[in-house]
């Protein structure tokens, strides 16, 4: 029967991109993430779901060391990206974040032109040697962000002048401009209307061809639509991690079942 699986749902690769072991996160005395082990695969969309305060965003932010910016936050355990510990003292968090890009809940374009929004990352990381190279990177990124056709005639216009959905796709274009290997998305559609949401979800599916995508979402249906793997967090624990179809038809843990079916849990 396995041969009859829908091809689109097939996980393309089984290569582990990020491997987390025994991860603990503390905010001061608050133990926010407890003993989380998870392997995130390459070229796969992994969704993190769970009630508010369950730690899914906190864990996501560990994956590119965004939690470093919070003083009281302490991370223990190991997180390897392609086998290398990202919390090693020799790792430069800025370089890490170029490899592990992030898209946030609210579209946050810089108060600059559309062009400069996308060109910013490649410039500071020295990815383009001249203007022509940069033009190529900007166009390629905007195309990957599925927004090129809508903005190609007004690249000098401010990014903040776009609609919410366009701004979010601009932010995704900005995130992919530095050629990341992993893209972290923290509720990327919660401020968008259903059409813009569908466009971003379509984009996520395209991005999966090249990147490993990890998405935090409160919309269970979104997790079901876009991801191949789903992780359910509850009270700082990773309760269940598995193939998305299995999680949504026959979850193993009763807590997962209660949560996804909308029962009091």
């Amino acid at each position: 029967m396995d041969d009859l699986r829908l091809v689109e749902r097939d996980v393309d690769a089984n290569n582990v991109k990020i491997s987390a072991q025994k991860v603990q996160v503390y905010y001061g005395s608050n133990h926010a993430i407890k003993d989380v082990d998870v392997d995130i695969e390459d070229k796969t969309v992994t969704a993190f779901i769970g009630p508010s305060g369950c730690g899914k965003s906190t864990f996501l932010r560990c994956l590119n060391r965004m939690n470093d910016t919070i003083d009281v936050c302490r991370v223990e355990g190991t997180i390897n990206l392609d086998g290398e510990d990202i919390y090693d003292e020799r790792v430069d968090p800025v370089q890490l974040r170029a490899k592990v890009g992030m898209v946030f809940q609210k579209p946050n374009p810089f108060p600059k032109s559309i062009y400069d929004n996308v060109a910013y990352g490649p410039r500071i990381h020295g990815l383009a040697s001249n203007k022509a190279d940069l033009d190529v990177i900007v166009e390629k990124s905007l195309r990957r962000g599925a927004i090129w056709d809508e903005v190609k005639d007004r690249l000098d216009a401010p990014g903040t002048g776009l609609s919410g959905g366009q701004q979010q796709r601009l932010c995704i274009a900005r995130a992919v401009a530095t050629e990341p290997e992993v893209l972290l998305m923290d509720e990327p559609c919660s401020a968008l209307d259903p059409i813009a949401t569908a466009q971003v979800e379509e984009l996520i599916d395209e991005l999966r061809q090249r990147y490993s995508v990890v998405i935090v979402t409160h919309s269970m249906q979104q997790a079901a639509r876009v991801s191949q793997k789903t992780a359910f967090f509850h009270l700082g624990n990773l309760v269940e991690f598995g193939e998305t179809g299995q999680i949504f038809t026959n979850p193993e843990d009763p807590r997962t079942e209660s949560y996804i079916t909308g029962r009091i849990g």
């Binding site: 269970m220 249906q221 079901a224 949504f248 038809t249 026959n250 979850p251 997962t256 079942e257 996804i260 079916t261």
Partner: peptide, 9 residues
Amino acid sequence: RAPTAVDLR
């Protein structure tokens, strides 16, 4: 209702 899990079954 977009039923899932036991509800879907």
